[in-house]
Amino acid sequence: MSVLSLSHIGHAYFGRTVLDRIDLDVEPGEMVALVGPSGCGKSTLIHIAAGIVEPLRGTVAAGYRRHAMVFQEPRLLPWATARDNIAYPLRLAGIRARERRARAGAAARRVAFDAVDLDKYPAELSGGMRQRVAIARALGVDPDFIFFDEPFTALDAALKRRMQDLVIDAARNARFAALFVTHDLMEAVRIAHRIVVLDVAGKGIAGQRMLPGEPGTREDSDVFAAVQAFLKRDPLFRHIHDVNERRVA
């Protein structure tokens, strides 16, 4: 029984088709990386899957209990402290202030966000800290499914690695399933159970590859070798680094 099932999804902006006939299932506890070149419709697809955008065609069947989302930008409320930002979804759910505080603090600890920074405003935090707050906000609602839309693209290489490890650990401890959009193949290989490649023009799923072993147990050398093998020998990944600037959003 899948926790997320997309069938025959199609979408168009102002009459221009960006997605067509997309079918995708995610199993419980499974981390699926969705890759494809910039502008191929990954963000549109994940927004549709998360219920933010209404698809033109097709259906989204969600079997999970509670979902959360992490965006490419942190998307924090500038007028609220880190703590209130983490607690924002809890506030939406009508949870009382005292419990919100406690749960926000616990979520911050899970992403190693320093407690002394909890009362700072987003403008006072570095980019990495802001993204930590965004991840804590997602973990705070205790989700069994998380949507990630290129969450670490804006971070430098070292920080990116730390954040990836954080997500891998959180996924193992909390056992949530996830759809993780990225255009970084290395990231996909480190973090996921399965890689799904979107067609260059969004016309369906081009193909998918299962990854051996569990995320977090793979050696760096294996990850590197796998990425090289995909890029050099696997035709599925031929267009992964194409950039059609006019279509990038």
Partner: peptide, 23 residues
């Protein structure tokens, strides 16, 4: 972007107006 974020966390239109728009 904040509107979409709130929507992803299950905020209805009235909640978005109060917690984001008016603020």
């Amino acid at each position: 972007g904040l509107d979409d974020m709130a929507r992803a966390f299950g905020a209805g239109p009235v909640q978005r107006l109060i917690t984001l728009g008016l603020r």
